[in-house]
Amino acid sequence: MPAISRDEVAHLARLARLDLSDDELSHYAEQLDVILTAVTRVGEVAAQDVEPMSHPVMLDNVFRADVLQPGLTAEEALSAAPAVEDSRFRVPRILDEE
């Protein structure tokens, strides 16, 4: 499956919000190709009837009671923020609605 193109790497970088340089795009295209070629080995295992394991612990129904717990004050919440205005996190302009 690999042979990952530079364009694909650029697409991944956009999805992952990484502003990669041209050099990095080329470098990662090369390295991802090597790594992906290696990990593609998982496909060699016959596993059609095998249940996927998303977790090593077989727990279920781990719930919390619907009871208020003390949280942070606005000051604490905002204390590490790069920019604050009017008790809110100030962020650069958003281009599109979700």
Binding site: M1, I4, A16, S54
Partner: peptide, 27 residues
């Protein structure tokens, strides 16, 4: 590098061959 790799492995079209298969290997 690992963020790129993971983003790729979870992408639509690749999930079953990569992440899904890896979980089966885990089993």
């Amino acid at each position: 590098r690992r963020i790129m790799l993971g983003t790729y492995a979870l992408s639509s079209g690749y999930y079953d061959a990569y992440y899904g298969q890896a979980q089966k290997v885990r089993t």
